[in-house]
Amino acid sequence: MKDWPVWEVFIRPRNGLDHRHVGSLHAPDGEMALELARDLYCRRGEGQSIWVVPAAAIVASAPEDRDSFFEPLEKEYRHAQHYRIPPEVKGM
């Protein structure tokens, strides 16, 4: 049991909301990961739906990519506030 893979757990708290990442766990396979997710993360009625995903299937950004990935630079035109709304437009 030492080599059980890691699974990431996503729970949808209510109908109409998105699945949110809540944590991870070790399990031998997907079905068991689902059951253990239920036992670990849904003990107090937290969820309506569970997704489990093998952690190995996640492609993650690297810390050293931060500058090129996430620095916003001078691109204010990407924000709605950048644009002046003409007075003719009402109810924006």
Partner: peptide, 12 residues
Amino acid sequence: APEIEEEMALIN
């Protein structure tokens, strides 16, 4: 229990 996850399951 052999794994903490399974321990939680059995204790539930």
